[in-house]
Amino acid sequence: MKMPEEEREVILSQVGEVLKDFRLSRESLIPVLQKVQEKLGYLPVLAMEKVAGDLGIPAVDVFGVASFYNQFRFNPPGENEIKVCMGTACYIAGGKIALDSFERRLEIKEGETTADRKYSLERVACVGCCTMAPVVVVNDKVEGHVTPTRVDGILLGLETGRQNEGTGRDGEGRQNR
């Protein structure tokens, strides 16, 4: 995926801005990454390389730390954020099936974002309403008892919702059925 020049510059300037407030050593790595993610919404490859360069540590060390902690994400959040609950109750009730359905429909893996940045898919651990398992949180709206059919329904709803705003295309949900 090629990144537009202006986006590269935004990333580099934002990361540079963040790094001003820190001592440039290995100890600052996690707070720096947190701050960068706070500003950009995710950790782009370019940002991690810049952080590694400025802190004077190998880039792979930055990647190692960032991939260790769940709080860091490598893909930009989508316009619609889909979070599939993988807590115990949801997992038992078929949360994995819901996640698989989303992965198939959106043609991305969990933790990824569609190329058009319309959807991002994440797994979370317990959103606190186990009676409705399996639960999916779509843009902070809780959807309960999510079956693969409901997955289609949710995506269709998001597509048509956008259609009303006049920016979307025809529902992908129907084409692929």
């Binding site: 190998p58 190692g64 260790f68």
Partner: peptide
């Protein structure tokens, strides 16, 4: 270095 966590942990590159 080591990357990822848990069962996905492996030796990897940037």
């Amino acid at each position: 270095n080591f990357i990822n966590r848990g069962l996905k942990r492996k030796i990897g590159t940037f």
